[in-house]
């Protein structure tokens, strides 16, 4: 579904992503793990068109999207829940969801109901300004907002960041549920343990290079990964 080949990304003169290649197949959960500054978020931003690669190719469902504008990609079925959630804090929960369905022209009640069954808390707060939500609720809203357009592939950037352990479990349960419903998932996480538990496959990213790859279980039991990311 998503195929990245020898992608190089720069921030001005800084060479942030140094020739990364990886794939996400339809129906998979793929995790990208790595330390802070390894380039995980940069990869997602480049795939979603907020940045563009200097060389290499990004293919989504057989189409080259490496230089496509970000706003067009959602129409192709690629959604990105960015780092830090980036919900519209001054708009209501309902309005945020409407923006998620912006490309649909009309917000379908059915989609709203579906999101509210996944996240009942949001239903209670639909008239509330999003900035007043707690961190966990904001993450739920960010994910719901992305779901409103029925994406084929959902890219999640650090969905567990800054959340209490119980909320982290809840968010990961929901990722599994979305996956069961047929959404392909590309997950970027610092919480390597959690990510490897649910991932079909995973890649380890170190300073702009992919250094290891394998199934979630393989990586979780690999010595190198355990030492570096799972605390021994």
């Amino acid at each position: 579904m998503l195929k990245i080949e020898d992608m190089h990304v720069y921030y001005g003169a800084i060479h942030a992503i140094k020739g990364v290649s990886f794939e996400v197949g339809e129906g998979e959960i793929v995790a990208l793990i790595g330390a802070n500054g390894a380039g995980k978020s940069t990869i997602l931003k480049t795939v979603s068109g907020l940045m563009h690669p200097r060389s290499g190719s990004i293919q989504f469902c057989g189409e080259d999207i490496s230089h496509m504008d970000a706003y067009k990609l959602l129409r192709h079925g690629l959604a990105h829940v960015p780092e830090g959630r980036r919900i519209f804090l001054q708009m209501t929960v309902q309005e945020n969801l409407e923006m998620g369905a912006y490309i649909k022209k009309e917000v379908s009640q059915q989609d709203l109901e579906k999101v509210f069954t996944l996240f009942p808390r949001l239903k209670e707060r639909r008239k509330q300004i999003a900035g007043t939500l707690s961190g966990g609720e904001q993450q739920m809203l960010a994910m719901s907002r992305a779901l409103m357009s029925h994406p084929k592939l959902m890219m999640l950037d650090e969905p567990s960041m800054g959340l209490a352990p119980i909320l982290v479990d809840q968010i990961f349960d929901i990722i599994k549920e979305l996956h069961k419903d047929g959404t392909t998932i590309l997950l970027v996480e610092q919480n390597a343990r959690k990510a490897l538990q649910i991932a079909d496959r995973a890649y380890v990213l170190e300073t702009g290079n992919i250094t290891l790859s394998g199934t979630g279980a393989e990586l979780a039991s690999s010595d190198a990964v355990r030492k570096a990311y799972l605390g021994g």
Binding site: Y71, R86, Q90, M99
Partner: peptide
């Protein structure tokens, strides 16, 4: 209106608005 709300979205967070499919 849908367009008006999109305008507020752009005003608040340009990148996030693009990720919603809004042409900035």
């Amino acid at each position: 209106t849908r367009t008006g709300k999109a305008m507020r979205a752009v005003s608040e967070d340009r990148d996030a608005a693009q990720l919603m499919g809004i042409n900035v």
